[in-house]
Computed example of a mutant assay.
Amino acid sequence: MGKIGLIFAGQGAQYVGMGKDLFENIPASKEIFNIADRELGYAISEICFNGSEEDINKTENTQPAVLTVSIAALKALEEKGIKADMVAGLSLGEYSALVCSNAIEFEDAVKLVRKRGKFMQEAVPQGVGGMAAILGLDRNKIAQACEESSEKGVVSIANYNCPGQIVIAGEKDALKLACKKAEELGAKRVIELSVSGPFHTKLLKPAADKLFEELKNIQLKEIIIPVITNVTADYIGKKEDVKNLLKEQVMSSVFWEDTINKMLEDGVDTFIEVGPGKALSGFVKKINRKVKIYNVEDINSLNKTIEGLKA
């Protein structure tokens, strides 16, 4: 029997209406939204279900909203008796993975990611930096393009998503030059991303430092389900490592392709993407076509996943 790996959605997966039918149909999921509203002191549930695009896309709302929907979906899955052998999450999704693993209480995580979103937003003024996806070019050549552009400012690899899709981030001029160089080196396409900052670069150090101050107040618990972290694409050894890794994660590359490969190597043959959207499922397909991939974001996808697992 193969293993089940749960993977949790990151920022960018959000959409208006997400989580609403979980809230309406599953008491354990509803309870998660109620806790989030109470802990945050405002109705994040309302922003998820009926908010404007503008509201849901504000980083300080997006992060708690995606986390809340992900944990609500997790509760729905757990009610059906599904247990993970290991977990991972893309960037923000790592907080959902840590909640799932027992390391962090949801009550703490939801307040923490709201602050994380705020700190990330404030670290680099709007318009100073950005991100771009580079398609169809290997990682060494992309690293070369970034290196050759660094005289214009900070630019580096932010996300190793899957074969043929790597995201770079940095200051506007350096980013522009790196995109041009990537095209010259043979990239099939370069897509500028509509994000508010150069996430997962050293420009986010002020956010990482502020986040670490908040993390000092968080009580961690023992990790029950193994968690693979973005920073190393390897298991978090002990709960004492969590705070440093979450600090690093804000300003380090996300090794997502390597994370999935680690899970595959350790026997995962069934992936369930938990939370809004199906971006991670797409990445997994590009990494390995043979594995089974499901997602849980609403009642329909939950039922499909349970049927698929039974079969």
Rank of each mutant, 00 (worst) to 15 (best):
I4C: 08
N161K: 14
S194W: 12
P226W: 04
D209P: 04
T59A: 15
F33A: 03
E78H: 05
Q144A: 13
R114K: 15
G17Y: 13
E148Q: 13
F49P: 11
K20D: 05
K278D: 08
F23Q: 11
A174E: 07
L77A: 06
N303V: 11
L302H: 10
K141M: 10
A65C: 10
G275N: 06
G129S: 10
E297P: 05
D241K: 11
K20E: 13
R289A: 14
P163A: 07
S301E: 09
E148A: 05
I4H: 08
A73K: 01
S96I: 13
D108F: 03
T259R: 02
N57P: 02
I104D: 00
E307C: 00
V16G: 14
D55V: 07
E257A: 13
K83P: 08
E307H: 01
G129M: 09
N261R: 15
I71H: 08
E78D: 03
T201A: 02
I82A: 08
E273C: 12
A279G: 08
I260T: 00
N159P: 07
A109F: 06
A65H: 01
L112N: 00
D209H: 02
K80P: 08
N244Q: 09
N61T: 09
N244R: 07
I191M: 14
G129V: 03
G51M: 09
L92S: 00
N159I: 15
I236Y: 03
G89V: 08
P64C: 02
T201Q: 05
L90F: 13
D234Y: 14
D241R: 12
A109M: 06
L67V: 15
G277W: 03
K290D: 14
G89W: 01
G136D: 08
A103S: 12
I44P: 08
A182P: 01
K285H: 11
L77Q: 11
F49V: 15
A187Y: 00
A9S: 15
I236L: 03
N300T: 13
V284P: 03
I287G: 02
V250Q: 07
N25W: 02
F23A: 12
I7W: 10
D173L: 14
A133G: 05
V124C: 11
E39S: 07
E183D: 03
E54R: 13
K172F: 07
P125W: 02
E257I: 15
I236H: 01
K262F: 12
D138A: 13
K202L: 08
Y42C: 03
G277D: 04
N288G: 06
I228E: 01
R139I: 14
R139D: 09
C146T: 12
E122V: 15
A158P: 07
V268I: 14
A65F: 06
A13L: 04
F283N: 07
I7E: 10
I168Y: 04
K141G: 09
L77S: 04
L211W: 01
M131H: 05
A132G: 06
Y294M: 11
E105V: 00
G186N: 12
I26R: 12
L302M: 13
R116I: 07
K238A: 09
P125E: 03
Y235C: 05
Q14F: 06
L67R: 04
F283A: 10
T201C: 05
V69W: 02
V250S: 10
L92I: 11
